[in-house]
């Protein structure tokens, strides 16, 4: 079949940013998958709760201090995270580097608090079904913090390398920022479920 040129793409940018970025959409799709997983874990928690004569079974409600501190820290981390998003959008390499270092440190802090959170549940995973779902929910969320931290650390190294000053990398930083917002956002219903459902 003969071809007839009817459109010239020469003047298009050589890389898509924002909603024209493929990795932005990919991140969004993976967030949808993981959000479904988080939602299902909450459903399992509520399902088991609906069956139990007492809740929590054979354990006091979890201590509020470590989990609440972690929640406050996560919500507070949104502030530097949003600043980092702004710097990435402006493609300001120096500020992005600083922002990534801050976000790396902020990624480590909740892991330390998490270490106190597991014992504050006053239940082991192998004691009863309540313990099992509590540990799985905490574990699932911890995995997300951990993977985001590793991603942030790698990005930090990348931004200090010769590959850093590239719109593509600033797009990666934006996606990383979005993913951290997601990690924080998913924690809030988990927190309400884990700490306040037993107090209803």
């Amino acid at each position: 079949m003969k071809e007839g040129v009817v459109l010239d793409l020469t003047d298009l940018p050589p890389h898509g940013l924002g909603t024209a970025s493929l990795s932005w959409w990919g991140t969004l799709a993976f967030m949808l998958i993981e959000a479904t997983g988080f939602a299902l874990s909450i459903v399992v928690y509520l399902y088991l709760m609906s069956l139990a004569p007492r809740w929590p079974p054979d354990a006091p409600p979890p201590d509020l201090l470590p989990g609440t501190t972690l929640t406050v820290l996560l919500v507070a981390s949104l502030f530097p995270n949003i600043l980092l998003a702004r710097w990435a959008r402006d493609q300001d390499l120096r500020k992005v580097r600083i922002g990534l270092i801050i976000m790396s440190l902020i990624g480590i802090a909740p892991l330390v608090l998490r270490a106190f959170e597991f014992p504050a549940m006053h239940i082991q995973w192998d004691q009863n079904a309540y313990g099992s779902i509590v540990w799985v929910m905490l574990g699932l969320h911890t995995t997300h913090i951990l993977t985001d931290l590793v991603e942030t650390l790698v990005l930090t190294c990348l931004m200090f390398s010769r590959h850093g000053d590239n719109p593509r990398r600033f797009g990666d930083v934006s996606d990383n920022v979005m993913y951290w917002n997601f990690v924080v956002a998913t924690w809030l219903p988990m927190y309400a479920c884990l700490y306040w459902a037993p107090r209803l």
Partner: peptide, 10 residues
Amino acid sequence: RDVLPVAAGL
């Protein structure tokens, strides 16, 4: 059927 419109510039 005879001519396929296409885009150039990649």
